[in-house]
């Protein structure tokens, strides 16, 4: 039923992943026995209540943190440090305030051996792709929240990652900008067909964008259930199937708890 049959080889493979934090000499279990395979070109959304370790999971996949038990493999290679084949976008755009949009996007290639002309072209192409043409020389302080996040998306994509990790990328935006950027994300994903893993609080967003929605439970963080969203992209927000799945995820997530 899926729009495109996912490639049979698992691109990202997580097996019995656990992670503890030590606070005041007491171990705090953040993630417990996570098993998850993400296929090539798949969009996976992760939802869960605060403290379910979904952001930690993303940081581990990014390689920003590497102290864990279990295995995380990308194309069969173990992940233990950041690499350009995994792009990352945070809720905070984390642009460097002293660089223009263009310099910020180009910074993703700071340590790459790419000819300058090609670098420039890639940077400008991506600025164009995220709809920031004309703002190449603007400083982050001159951008709105949505524009800053667009710039961050361009920066994450310019190194042509195989996997894009999104940690509540639209969480700080107002409702309208949020809807618009959801469509943009979908458009970019359809155009590039890269693997995307997105953590979000917004169930509607998770269902609208994801091929699969991973529901996580807190304390310790573990996977409760994985819901398929068997609808082709680009999707229709008004689709009754979509709404039914959203309600189901929401019900599962709240688990009878009144919110």
């Amino acid at each position: 039923m899926a729009f495109e049959t996912p490639s049979p080889t698992a691109k990202l493979s997580i097996q019995s992943l656990s992670k503890n934090y030590v606070i005041d000499q007491k171990a705090l279990r953040v993630l417990l026995n996570i098993d998850l395979d993400v296929h090539e070109g798949e969009f996976v959304s992760i939802v869960g209540r605060s403290g379910c370790g979904k952001s930690t999971l993303l940081r581990l996949v990014s390689g920003l943190e590497n102290d864990y038990s279990g295995t995380i493999q990308l194309d069969g290679k173990v992940i233990n440090a950041p690499s350009l084949d995994r792009g990352m976008i945070f809720q905070d755009p984390s642009l460097l305030p002293w660089m223009t949009v263009r310099e910020n996007v180009a910074f993703a290639l700071v340590n790459q051996n790419i000819p300058k002309a090609e670098k420039d072209k890639r940077v400008l192409d991506l600025i164009d792709l995220v709809g920031l043409k004309g703002f190449e020389s603007a400083y982050p302080k001159e951008l709105s929240g949505g524009m800053a996040q667009r710039a961050a998306i361009a920066r994450a994509l310019v190194s042509q990652p195989k996997v894009l990790l999104l940690d509540e990328p639209l969480g700080a935006l107002d409702a309208l900008t949020r809807l618009r950027l959801q469509n943009e994300l979908q458009r970019i994903w359809l155009q590039h067909r890269m693997t995307m893993i997105m953590v979000t609080h917004d169930v509607e967003e998770a269902v609208y964008l994801g091929d699969r929605v991973v529901i996580m439970d807190p304390e310790p963080g573990r996977i409760r259930r994985i819901v398929d969203v068997p609808l082709p992209h680009p999707r229709d927000r008004a689709s009754p199937v979509l709404h039914a799945i959203r309600d189901e995820v929401l019900k599962d997530l709240t688990n009878g708890v009144v919110i």
Binding site: S62, L64, P82, S83, L84, G87, M88, F90, D92, S94, L96, W98, M99, F107, A108, L109, V110, N111, S159
Partner: peptide, 27 residues
């Protein structure tokens, strides 16, 4: 710390981290 994380994600060398993140950040 967020700016330092950006440098790590894009594999900036020590010198590049200093030149592009630490120095302007401290300015």
């Amino acid at each position: 710390a967020r700016h330092v994380a950006v440098g790590r994600i894009f594999l900036a060398s020590r010198w590049q981290t200093f030149r592009h993140i630490v120095l302007p950040g401290a300015l």
